[in-house]
C-alpha cells in the first residue's frame, strides 16, 4: 500500500469513527451520562466526548488542508517529473 493510500484509508477510518461515536453517544445519552452520579459512566462518556470532538475538529479544520496539500504536491511533482523527462530527451 502506498503512503497516499494509507493516508486515504486513515481518513476514511476517522470519518467512520466520528459517525459511529456520534451515533453511539446519541443513543446512550451523552449529557445524561456526563451528569450521572456514577463515576465510571461519566468518565467513559467524557473520554468518548473528547474523542468525538477531537475527530470532529480534526476532520473539519485540518483534514481538508492535508488532502489539498497532498493533491497540489502530487500535481507539482508530476509536472516537475514531466519537465525533467522533457529536458533529458534528445
Amino acid at each position: 500500500m502506498t503512503h497516499a493510500a494509507k493516508q486515504a484509508a486513515a481518513l476514511l477510518v476517522a470519518i467512520a469513527a466520528h459517525e459511529a461515536l456520534a451515533r453511539a453517544l446519541a443513543a446512550a445519552g451523552l449529557v445524561e451520562r456526563l451528569l450521572s452520579p456514577s463515576g465510571p459512566g461519566a468518565a467513559l462518556a467524557l473520554v468518548a466526548a473528547l474523542a468525538l470532538y477531537g475527530l470532529r475538529l480534526g476532520l473539519l479544520f485540518v483534514a481538508p488542508g492535508l488532502v489539498a496539500a497532498r493533491i497540489i504536491a502530487a500535481l507539482i511533482e508530476s509536472r516537475r517529473a514531466a519537465a525533467l523527462r522533457g529536458a533529458r530527451a534528445p
Partner: peptide, 11 residues
C-alpha cells in the same frame, strides 16, 4: 509550507 498554507486556507 504548502501543507500549512492549505490547512489555513481550507480551515
Amino acid at each position: 509550507a504548502l501543507t500549512l498554507a492549505c490547512v489555513l486556507a481550507t480551515g
